[in-house]
């Protein structure tokens, strides 16, 4: 397609579209850089956990407290929520509001379920004598796992805000950008959780 074929109006329109597409690429790359820096934050927390992994100070050990069946359910909730977010994204790309919103709602509920289980687990551990003050191990455990939990909380708040945005503006370009950034964030949280259940829970239960 040569530009001489296009009328002036079409050319302006084309430029705008080009600008929008460029902005979408920029926004998603900018958000990707945030994800990378968040990765580095989790890397330092994992490093601290690894260094502290044997520092029990004579107190209760993870092997005595971890309940792997419980962790397996938490893992299932988060993994499935990553999948349902993917379905919401497909609904959004098909411009199907009902489909997008239903899948997003399911994702938020799965996230809330995960969060509820995590809070229950923390209360149970504290009750059994494993608080962040107990030992180096438990300090690093709570720092790592609770940071992930706070991210999940932020993700759920973000999801509820997106419901407001989509109710107001529908499938606008801005809303699509917001949704794909949140999608990246949510999948990233599931990827961090893979490392948490593998290197904290499974390794700690051995």
């Amino acid at each position: 397609m040569t530009s001489s074929v296009l009328s002036e109006h079409e050319e302006v329109n084309h430029d705008e579209h080009h600008h929008d597409a460029e902005r979408t690429v920029l926004v998603s790359f900018g958000f990707w850089l945030y994800i990378i820096s968040d990765c580095l934050l989790f890397a330092t927390l994992f490093a601290t956990y690894a260094v502290m992994s044997q520092s029990f100070a004579g107190a209760v050990t993870p092997k005595e407290l971890f309940d792997l069946k419980f962790v397996a359910i938490e893992t299932g909730l988060l993994l499935f929520s990553s999948f349902t977010f993917g379905m919401a994204m497909l609904g959004a790309h098909a411009q199907n509001m009902v489909r997008m919103k239903s899948w997003l709602l399911i994702t938020a509920l799965l996230g809330l379920g995960f969060l509820g289980m995590e809070i229950y687990e923390f209360m149970h551990f504290s009750h059994e004598g494993a608080t962040p003050q107990t030992s180096g191990y438990w300090s690093s455990f709570y720092a790592l796992v609770a940071t992930h939990g706070l991210h999940v909380t932020a993700g759920i708040i973000w999801m509820s805000l997106l419901f407001v945005h989509f109710n107001r503006d529908g499938f606008s370009l801005d809303n699509m950008r917001r949704l794909s950034c949140l999608s990246l964030f949510w999948h990233f949280l599931d990827i961090i959780w893979i490392c948490v259940f593998s290197f904290v829970y499974l390794r700690g239960a051995l």
């Binding site: 579209h17 929008d20 597409a21 979408t24 690429v25 998603s28 999948f83 993917g86 379905m87 994204m89 497909l90 790309h93 411009q95 499938f171 370009l173 699509m176 950008r177 794909s180």
Partner: peptide, 17 residues
């Protein structure tokens, strides 16, 4: 509408998910 469906990155398919 046309612009939105093409804006941004690849978004996969149900089979892929």
């Amino acid at each position: 509408k046309h612009e939105q469906t093409h804006a941004g990155e690849a978004h996969g398919s149900t089979a892929e998910y």
